[in-house]
């Protein structure tokens, strides 16, 4: 009986770790999509300043006023921790 219960516990633990691993894998995949989308979004807004024109510069500036916190956040994450345009450029396959 004790053996059965021990096996059951191990099976449950195994299934939990599988579930956790799958959850982490899923979150990781979603995080990757999120990062790509955030870069694409930033590229849509800031692209016109660096020659990748997706919309007019004045509309970009108008949007930028409302996106300061957002850009700051992305800037922290960006390459070498200091360059948001670098992040945009790396999304295009370039480097800084």
């Amino acid at each position: 009986m004790r053996i059965v219960s021990s096996i059951a516990r191990k099976i449950v633990a195994f299934l939990r770790s599988v579930e956790r691993a799958m959850r982490e894998e899923s979150v990781h995949a979603i995080e990757q999509e999120l990062k790509e989308l955030e870069s694409a979004f930033l590229l849509m807004i800031l692209g016109s300043f660096v020659g990748v024109r997706t919309m007019t510069p004045l509309l970009s500036l108008e949007l930028l006023e409302g996106l300061q916190e957002e850009v700051e956040l992305l800037r922290e994450r960006a390459f070498k921790g200091e360059d948001v345009i670098g992040e945009v450029a790396s999304a295009l396959g370039g480097g800084t």
Partner: peptide, 13 residues
């Protein structure tokens, strides 16, 4: 009006 904002947000500029 936006020059300072751009300068502060995007050092690579």
């Amino acid at each position: 009006r936006h020059a300072d904002l751009l300068r502060s947000l995007m050092p690579s500029l």
